[in-house]
Amino acid sequence: PEEVRRLVEELYRKGVSPEQVKKILKKQGIDEREIEKVLRRIG
């Protein structure tokens, strides 16, 4: 979803590592598979 992409990109631009991005967003209840999809697209 758009909102997940925005959150991931925001953290990524701040220099947060992909592993940390995953941890942070998982705590917020976001599906890990969604996060990984976005990270793959960015990375």
Rank of each mutant, 00 (worst) to 15 (best):
I35R: 00
E9L: 09
R40I: 14
L7A: 07
E19R: 08
Q28L: 12
L25Y: 00
I35C: 01
G29Y: 02
E19P: 07
V8Q: 00
E3P: 07
K23N: 13
K26E: 09
V4P: 02
K37N: 14
K27Y: 08
K14E: 13
K22H: 09
I30R: 03
Q28F: 10
K22Y: 08
K26P: 01
R40Y: 03
I24T: 07
I30P: 00
I24Q: 08
K37E: 15
V8M: 03
G29L: 04
E3Q: 11
V21K: 00
Q20S: 11
V38E: 15
I42W: 04
R13D: 12
E3S: 11
L39S: 04
K26C: 03
P1A: 12
E10R: 06
E36V: 02
L25T: 00
R33H: 12
R33S: 12
I30V: 10
L11T: 01
R13K: 13
V16N: 10
I42R: 05
I24G: 01
K22W: 05
E9M: 08
K14D: 11
L39R: 02
L39F: 02
R5I: 11
G15H: 06
V38P: 00
E9P: 00
L39K: 02
K27H: 12
I30M: 11
I30K: 02
D31M: 05
E3G: 09
I30E: 01
L25N: 00
G29D: 03
V4N: 02
V16P: 00
K14Y: 07
V38H: 13
S17A: 12
K14Q: 13
I24E: 07
K27Q: 14
L11N: 01
R40H: 15
Q20I: 09
I24L: 09
G15W: 01
E9T: 06
V16Y: 14
V38M: 10
I35T: 03
R40F: 03
E3C: 04
V8E: 00
G29K: 03
L11R: 00
E3H: 09
K23T: 14
I42Y: 05
I42S: 05
P1N: 14
E32A: 07
V38W: 06
I24P: 00
I42N: 04
D31G: 06
V21H: 00
E10S: 07
V16I: 13
E32L: 05
E34C: 06
L25Q: 00
V8W: 02
E34L: 13
Y12Q: 10
R13F: 13
V8F: 03
K26W: 04
Y12H: 12
R13S: 13
E3R: 08
E2C: 05
E10H: 07
V8N: 00
E9D: 08
R41W: 11
R33M: 11
R41Y: 08
R33A: 14
Q28K: 12
L39E: 04
V38G: 05
D31R: 04
E9C: 08
R40C: 04
K37P: 06
V8T: 02
Q20G: 12
E10G: 05
E2F: 06
E10L: 07
L25D: 00
V8D: 00
K27F: 09
Q28T: 09
L25I: 02
E3M: 10
E19M: 07
I35E: 00
Y12V: 15
V16E: 08
I30T: 02
E10A: 10
Y12N: 06
V8S: 01
K14F: 06
R6K: 12
V16A: 13
K27W: 07
K27M: 14
L7M: 11
P1Y: 14
R33I: 10
R40M: 08
V38F: 03
K22P: 02
L25R: 00
G15L: 04
R33Y: 06
I35Y: 03
E10D: 13
K37R: 10
L39D: 02
E10F: 06
R33F: 07
E32G: 06
G15S: 04
R13G: 11
K22G: 05
E19H: 11
Y12M: 15
G29R: 02
G15R: 03
Y12E: 05
I42G: 05
L7Y: 05
V21T: 08
R41N: 15
K26A: 14
R40D: 15
K37L: 11
E36M: 02
R41M: 14
L11Q: 02
R13C: 09
P18H: 08
R41F: 10
E10W: 06
Q20N: 13
R5E: 10
K37Y: 03
E19F: 03
D31Q: 06
I35N: 00
